[in-house]
Amino acid sequence: MNVFGDALVYLNDPFSWTRPGSGILDLLAQHLRISGAAVALALLVALPLGIWLGHTGRGGAFTVALSNVGRAVPTLAILTIFAVTPIGFGPTATTLALALFAIPPVLTNTYVGFRQVDQDVVEAARAMGMTGRQVTFRAELPLAVPLLMTGVRTAAVQVVATATLAALVAGGGLGRIINLGFGQQDYGQVVAGAIVVAALAILTELVFVALSWALTPGQRTLPWRRMRPKVA
């Protein structure tokens, strides 16, 4: 039997899902906790900073430079650095490393989203007597939502996929399935772990696409629904 057949056998075994501590369901819960905490931390840092920079028009070069540096530094290198600091190994180190990995796309897309808002809309809002805060959150933010959510979606998918590295630093998550498979030379288990992680990443993508669609202001049409011509 090939490795894909072994992977299907592993995934069809109920014990693989319910094994205490190392079953797929327990590891999935750990994976989601780590990923969710990392994305939330990244949003807390990147969204206010991106909104402020985009609204004021400052820091464009800083934002681009930070994005490039953030994408160039591998998460595993950050985990290695954390290992020789008081942070050490474990879920905290993984969460912080993944948050640093998620900040650049959120920050960049938020900044670009605000800068691409039509300045006529901004001036009209100011002419109506809106304060700077009202212009930011009532005029600019709704129009920046599509690009902003693209950054959030990109960050979330990247974090979910990269969180498998948590298993290398005693952080838990679905990466343990792959790690244990390599340790036991059970490549069917390795492929099974990869399938679960890939499926979770695709599901995350779909969830955030739906969320972006729901949050985008204006008339919305389902992507798969064709517009029917009106009959006179």
Rank of each mutant, 00 (worst) to 15 (best):
N2S: 11
L8E: 02
L11K: 02
D13T: 14
D13H: 09
P14D: 03
W17K: 14
R19Q: 12
S22Q: 13
G23N: 07
I24N: 06
L25H: 10
L27N: 06
L27A: 05
A29P: 03
A29I: 12
I34Q: 11
I34G: 06
L44Y: 07
V45F: 11
L47D: 04
P48N: 14
H55G: 06
G57H: 07
G60D: 06
F62D: 14
A65G: 06
N68I: 08
G70P: 00
R71C: 07
R71T: 02
V73C: 09
L76I: 11
T94N: 11
T95F: 09
A97Y: 05
P104A: 10
P104G: 08
N109M: 15
T110D: 09
D118Y: 02
Q119K: 15
V121Y: 11
V122F: 09
A125F: 01
G129W: 10
T136S: 13
P142S: 10
P142V: 05
A144K: 13
L147K: 02
L147R: 03
G151S: 09
T154P: 05
V159N: 09
V159D: 00
V159K: 14
T162P: 04
T164Q: 07
A166Y: 03
A167S: 15
A170Q: 14
G172T: 04
G173N: 10
G173D: 03
L174I: 04
G175H: 10
G175D: 06
R176P: 02
I177V: 13
I178K: 08
N179Y: 14
F182T: 07
Q185L: 15
Y187D: 15
Q189F: 01
I202G: 03
L206N: 04
L206R: 02
F208H: 08
F208Y: 06
A214F: 10
P217A: 05
P217D: 03
T221W: 01
T221Y: 07
R225L: 12
R226H: 11
R228P: 00
R228L: 13
K230P: 03
V231K: 15
